[in-house]
Design a protein around this nucleic acid. Structure first.
Length: 103
DNA sequence: CGCGCGGCCTAGC
DNA sequence: AGCTAGGCCGCGC
């Protein structure tokens, strides 16, 4: 597996329950600020057996992933809600309140 | 080898 | 909020 992926998974694995991170944020954290899209690809390609909370990674606006990823946006939203993530009226994550910020 | 396609992002209306 | 335009880069064909 590519080192890039490994580092993405390390960061993603550290997102606590009730919080979310963005693709771009993770990309910047591992020193690849221009590779936000690849972070999304890495999330989609998590190997069997690796316990990575991919549902806790959203885009910068707090939108759910496309339907085909988790079955439906509603499903992902249910999971995050059950973990305590705060949502806005439009159905997106309230990034002000629920984004996991690391120094 | 080239080319299209993404769980994206920023800037700029 | 919504839209475009441009850039990004790994992957599969």
């Amino acid at each position: 597996m590519k080192d890039f992926y490994r580092r993405v998974y390390e960061v993603a694995a550290g997102i606590p329950k009730g919080k979310v991170m963005t693709y771009g944020q993770i990309a910047r954290l591992i020193g690849e600020p221009r590779s936000a899209r690849i972070v999304g690809y890495a999330m989609k390609s998590i190997p069997e057996g690796m316990k990575i909370p991919a549902h806790r990674v959203v885009n910068r606006l707090g939108e759910m992933a496309p339907d085909h990823v988790f079955g439906s946006k509603e499903l992902q939203r249910e999971i995050l809600l059950s973990e305590g993530v705060i949502f806005k009226e439009n159905g997106w994550v309230d990034m002000e309140k629920s984004q996991y910020k690391t120094i």
